[in-house]
Design a protein around this nucleic acid. Structure first.
Length: 809
RNA sequence: GCUGGAGUGGCGGAAUUGGUAUACGCGCUAGUCUUAGGAACUAGUCCCUCACGGGUUGCGAGUUCGAGUCUCGCCUCCAGCACCA
């Protein structure tokens, strides 16, 4: 007779409908009788193709949501769509679709696919960033930031993606390429909208210390913010026919200023233009400037050989030595960092050394190493620049002092000031694309920007638009938008054509979940007080220096405007791993290794897919996991074994052995799940099932406890068996069994016996056995006795219930 | 190059945080059932050895009664940053 199997096709969708009809997962945010727990994952972009990775994101966090609910927490587990963005526009151009319709259709399709995995999501709070109900508040918040000078318009050299025909934020450029399409970016000087994230650099950095995030994530953010302490020093110009301010440099090594033998300006340094008139080699300098302007930053850094041109006929004065030193323009100095000018200390800086060698510039050693290690002297051709600490020489009155002890004194002596510099640049938020949130700004006839008053929000995205990207923002082609602006603001007024980067939309969506339908405010103050910060936030590693940084900035800015009650948005952060194709490669149509999620569900069922994903590895660290059918089949077997086990359920007493097994599983599932280690939690469940399988009949009460523990992992199977076992309601409304840890205290314990640290056997002792008793028992072991005869016992180490180690001479 | 994280069976990964290394699962081997199975079930499965034994957590040292876990040095992989002054 064939064994019965779990008929997932018939059962899973029926149960999902039942849960939804019962509104089982709609969280009452005002319910204060239970402790709130805000569990969040990064909301999806509606690309239209659901990836197994989506389920990995939702189904595995769902395990925890279900567990917490059964443990009596009021759990907020919401979902929405990050619905503005480029792919919609690209599809529009390719297939002639309308970006809005394309997006809405994809969302509808994905809602069904997401639902089919059986996650306990609260859809009633769904947030869609491209809906006017949402983006009016993105605009409102932008206006707030603008009023407080945290959003501003400025001309700057920015990164431009030639393929996507839009500017990009620095964070969206990896290795000189567009994050999205991998095209090499170029620099352009453009007037754009920025957010003043640099104002928050220090707090974004120092507040990391208090966050219980993985060091990896925190370090990546620290590196991105890139704080360095140093000084600003002024180098006045020598004789020159034009009146010019001193050249300001930033240095982290003011202690080496006596060794600065030349200055270098970045090719884009504004001073060069005003000096061109009084330098001897104007043509040459212009030519060099133009040549570097044509290169991308990447091309500049790839060129290992340093290049530059001296500004002839003009000198700067070293403020420490008062001596005149030459000035160069060279592209190894970046205009975007510090002051765009550096003092070169070739004796103690590798880059300056390289440049000085090429152009035969003088080296002055000012730091003498004191570590006693032999190094080539500076007069030797093999000299390598020494960048460490030591004793100062050739430094006037600072000679013989330790360099790091006189930092401040030297800065003062040279007339400079201490400063801190950050690598991070202001966040560029405007995009020359259609499918994004319109920037709520209009320009008066003089071209001055004005924020659009709140009564005109949502400032709607026009529909009569030519999407094709020409480098000019598509919104410029809208007749309706022009008419709207003139109608409301007057003749000669013009709209802002750029839209906001989607990362602006996603910087506050977790606030909107708390009051998703509110037409009067972006969120509810009481709800924010009760629910923020988000307790646990799960997402992808790729967002460490993008979304995660932006959202922290945005939140802090709102905090300063008293709009949110906490300084940080997310308490805990977990970066999830990646589900790869069966071949271990990233799933891609190009490799033909894309796993169709719907087929998996059809064949194995949602519970098997869920459990496979849970078991694949620890969820609290980002690994790369190939999708293996063998693994899914194993979970399918496990499900059927449980299903078959249900036929043995009968009335009866729960033995103490079984009781212990239940408690053990309970404790492990709880503690492992708290650490997002669902793989080991599930293994505890497997051990318990093995235990149950050894029994002729499974007592009904033990079976119910088991089903509750199974419920987070296999919600359909558990609820179905809960019902067939004759229980009331849904297993998902049941209470998690209280673990009686006392039961785990065994009367006896197996104690390992070691001689000189080597395992020689084990003895079973009462768990309260004294050292004396353990010793006696251990000495009686034949394997031990043999060794005892050959020597003298020097020491005995006894760890109760664990180990006894006999140390012999 | 700098910074951070990590190296455990054929594979994904366990190890109460210093106390029986390899849980759980995959794969593999043998068997049972079957006309057959790439189904299901049962048993075995770190390495060397017929065995007795011995060895094993990237490599080498150290601390300790005892080290996968702590310390130091090296190697390798992953990630972030990278001409950042």
């Amino acid at each position: 007779m064939p064994k019965p199997v779990f008929d997932h096709k018939a059962i899973e969708t029926t149960l999902q409908k039942k849960w939804e009809d019962a509104k089982l997962y709609e969280t009452n945010l005002a319910d204060t009788s239970k402790e709130p727990y805000y569990l969040l994952f990064e909301f999806p972009y509606p690309s239209g193709d659901l990836h197994i990775g989506h389920w990995y994101a939702y189904a595995i966090t769902d395990i925890y949501a279900r567990l917490l609910r059964m443990k009596g927490k009021n759990v907020l587990f919401p979902i929405g769509f990050d619905a503005f963005g480029l792919p919609a526009e690209n599809a529009a151009m390719k297939q002639g679709a309308n970006p809005k319709e394309w997006t809405l259709a994809n969302m509808e399709k994905m809602r069904g696919q997401i639902r089919s995995i059986g996650a306990s999501l609260d859809w009633s709070k769904e947030v869609v960033t491209c809906s006017p109900e949402y983006y009016q508040w993105t605009q409102w918040l932008f206006a707030k930031l603008y009023e407080h000078k945290l959003a501003y318009r400025a001309s700057a050299s920015v990164k431009w993606c030639p393929k996507d025909q839009t500017v990009l934020a620095n964070e969206q450029v990896t290795d000189g390429k567009c994050e999205r399409c991998d095209t090499e970016v170029v620099e352009k000087k453009l007037t754009q909208w920025f957010m003043k994230i640099t104002d928050y650099a220090e707090r974004l950095l120092s507040d990391l210390d208090e966050l219980p995030w993985r060091e990896e994530i925190k370090e990546a953010q620290r590196a991105w913010i890139g704080r360095s302490e140093g000084a600003k020093l002024l180098f006045p110009l020598g004789a020159c026919t034009v009146e010019a301010d001193p050249i300001e440099v930033f240095t982290t090594r003011p202690d080496t200023v006596f060794g600065a033998t030349y200055l270098v300006l970045a090719p884009e340094h504004p001073l060069i233009e005003s000096l061109l008139a009084c330098i001897g080699n104007e043509k040459e300098v212009r030519a060099y400037r133009d040549a570097t302007a044509r290169k991308t930053e990447r091309e500049r850094s790839e060129n290992k050989e340093k290049t530059g041109v001296q500004l002839e006929g003009i000198m700067a004065v070293n403020p420490a030595t008062k001596k005149e030193i030459p000035i160069y323009v060279a592209d190894y100095v970046l205009a975007s960092y510090g002051t765009g000018a550096v003092m070169a200390v070739p004796a103690h800086d590798e880059r300056d050394f390289e440049f000085a060698k090429k152009y035969d510039l003088p080296l002055i050693q000012v730091v003498q190493p004191t570590d006693g290690i032999f190094r080539e002297p500076i007069t030797n051709p093999n000299y390598v620049p020494y960048t460490g600490n030591g004793t100062l020489i050739n430094s006037g009155k600072f000679d013989d002092k330790e360099n790091f002890k006189v930092f401040s004194d030297i800065i003062e002596f040279a007339g400079g000031e201490r400063t801190t510099n950050y690598r991070i640049r202001d966040w560029l938020v405007s995009r020359q694309r259609y499918w994004g949130c319109p920037i709520p700004i209009v320009y008066d006839p003089e071209g001055m920007p004005h924020v659009i008053p709140a009564e005109h929000l949502p400032w709607k995205l026009p529909e009569d638009v030519d999407f094709s990207p020409t480098g000019k923002a598509p919104l410029a082609s809208s007749k309706e938008l022009h008419e709207r602006v003139e109608r409301i603001f007057g003749k000669g007024w013009t709209p802002e054509y750029d839209t906001l980067d989607t990362f602006v939309d996603s910087s506050w969506y977790y606030l909107r979940y708390l009051d998703a339908k509110n037409p009067r405010a972006f969120s509810d103050a009481d709800a924010m007080r009760a629910w923020l910060p988000v307790k646990r936030y799960s997402g992808g590693s790729e967002h460490t220096t993008m979304h995660l940084l932006y959202a922290r900035f945005f939140h802090k800015a709102l905090y300063d405007l008293a709009l949110v009650p906490t300084a940080e948005p997310f308490q805990e952060r977990y970066n999830r791993g990646l589900i790869m194709g069966p071949d271990g490669q990233k799933m891609s149509k190009r490799w033909g290794n894309v796993v169709n999620p719907d087929e998996m569900l059809e064949k194995y069922g949602a519970d098997a897919v869920r459990m496979y994903l849970a078991f694949i590895g620890p969820y609290n660290e980002p690994g790369h996991y190939p999708w293996k059918l063998d693994g899914v089949e194993a979970m399918r077997r496990f499900i059927d074994r449980i299903y078959q086990l249900s036929e043995r359920v009968a009335d009866g007493e729960v033995s103490s052995v079984l009781q212990k097994a239940l408690v053990k599983a309970n404790v492990k599932i709880e503690s492992d799940s708290d650490r997002f280690k669902f793989n080991t939690a599930l293994s505890a469940l497997m051990v318990l099932v093995k235990e149950l399988e050894t029994m002729e009949s499974v007592p009904a009460s033990a079976w119910s406890s088991f089903l509750i523990m199974l419920a987070p992992f296999a919600p359909h199977l558990a609820d179905h068996l809960w019902e067939t076992a004759g229980n009331e309601g849904s297993v998902h409304s049941a209470k998690w069994p209280e673990a009686d840890i006392e039961l785990l205290n065994e009367d006896t314990a197996t104690v390992t016996v070691q001689v000189n640290g080597k395992r020689r056997g084990e003895v079973t002792l009462s768990s309260s056995a004294t050292e004396e008793e353990a010793r006696t028992a251990a000495f009686e072991l034949p394997a031990v006795a043999v060794l005892l005869a050959g020597g003298e016992v020097k020491k005995v180490i006894y760890v109760q219930n664990r180990i006894i180690n006999i140390v012999m001479g």
